[in-house]
Design a protein around this nucleic acid. Structure first.
Lengths: 250, 250
DNA sequence: AGCGCTAGGTAACAACGTGTAACGGACCGG
DNA sequence: CCGGTCCGTTACACGTTGTTACCTAGCGCT
């Protein structure tokens, strides 16, 4: 697990059975993470307040306290990833785990290697939660009559009609929108859109692909594509999204 | 500027000319942000230590101190966005500003509305620096001989040959990789890939588009597509990336 | 102003990517 | 063993995307 990143993961192991707790902490430590044992809710909160915790392995049955309740509480307060561990394997038990916000649910007895894999998966997911796993932006953007609903990836014309933008046109719009009033070079746009186009990297000049995308986008959202008011050209540089945008949550 | 988000932006206005400073702070305050005046480097560091600062408007000429030097220093220490403000409009002056890490460079005298737009742009850029503006992951992932270079968006076969994956195949691979060992439903995958396919949302069952993508990806990276070892099928659910992955920085 | 150069707009084309439909096999229940 | 569902696979058709080519607009130069 040494490859997981620069920082060593700090994992809180919560189980009221001392034997189980020791087994898990030892195993995790042998695999390169810092495992901190805990048995009660009180101990959990103490750890959360004192130091960084990257992941909580939470047993469902903790004597008089319920792991589910604890998980629900944790979730409303913080954003620590939680893997529920339980001997209860029924589907509705699992569902209950996911419902209170658990990231994963592992049934005892489990294969230690599998536990490790799940831990790894959850950690790496939380680490780049915004890049690959793609936490979706839920805002709505409005500019000169147009509406872009980031949640549904939909663009509405001033008349309220949905416009058919292709995926890349969408991506281009998003990129320019995200950098409103900032001129972007073709290279920057290409980078953001993953244009590894054939002629792109070979020539010093990134192909005309971006120009075409802009042209096509303009033809769909500009009232007069000949005199663009939204997507302006910065001669010798690139393009700018140059009207004001208001954002609102949905 | 009220739409900028839940939190009110806290902007540090650094200028040694009291009149200018007042003008800018008042204007920013009228437009919904908290503007804090400062004149010296000492005041800046004090503010940075005492409270959250979302943006610094930094005058280039500050009596005996140079805004450029201050900016360079700030950049090596922290990650606060900086907009340089200056009466010097020559290109090499601007370049100098960007070189020390400024996010933007505004020439005095400026149109207040434009200042606001730039401020807004920089703030919104820093706020979602990882979603739309797409901070690229620079890791390299290795699994069963294969290499995925996230930086260049390139996949190398065990023999070291670059494989031609289409953009969506790449995206699919990324998504599954990011959720290694976690079974993903077709809906989750579709969501991550922005599949708003024609038959997709209308039917309860998301079309077979994902199946096809998986099939095509398998045909390119599985040694025996008939017996997939990397991209396994979870019958009734979806697909899992089910081999171990090691990550490393590049 | 006139000239020429370069950058950008645009049309047409070709190639590729991608979703759908259809068929067949695998798996799982009774 | 049989039926149904789920999935793999092939074939196909359409949309999308990058390129080439040509033209126009902008800009510096003499």
């Amino acid at each position: 697990m040494g490859e997981l990143g620069v920082t060593i993961p700090r994992i809180l192991v919560v189980d009221d059975d001392p034997e189980m707790r020791n087994m898990m902490t030892q195993f995790l430590r042998q695999n390169g993470s810092i495992a901190l044992p805990a048995a009660t809710e009180f101990e959990i909160t103490r750890h959360l307040e004192t130091g960084r915790i990257d992941l909580i392995l939470l047993d469902v049955m903790l004597g008089d306290e319920s792991g589910l309740d604890i998980c629900r509480k944790l979730r409303t307060e913080q954003d620590v990833p939680v893997i529920m561990v339980s001997a209860l394997s029924a589907d509705n038990q699992r569902m209950a785990g996911y419902e209170v916000g658990a990231d994963d649910y592992i049934v005892k007895p489990f294969n230690p290697k599998l536990l490790l894999a799940r831990v790894k998966a959850v950690l790496s997911r939380s680490r780049r939660s915004s890049s690959l796993t793609h936490r979706r932006n839920t805002k709505t953007y409005r500019f000169s009559g147009w509406t872009y609903d980031a949640k549904r990836d939909v663009v509405l014309s001033p008349e309220g009609v949905q416009v058919a933008l292709s995926r890349r046109e969408m991506a281009l719009l998003q990129t320019l929108l995200a950098n409103q009033h900032i001129p972007l070079t073709r290279e920057e746009i290409a980078e953001a859109l993953d244009v590894t186009g054939d002629a792109a990297q070979s020539q010093e000049r990134v192909g005309r692909a971006i120009d075409m995308l802009v042209a096509r986008l303009r033809s769909k959202i500009e009232t007069d594509p000949k005199d663009p008011r939204i997507l302006k050209t910065e001669r010798g540089t690139g393009y700018v999204f140059s009207v004001d945008v208001t954002e609102s949550e949905t």
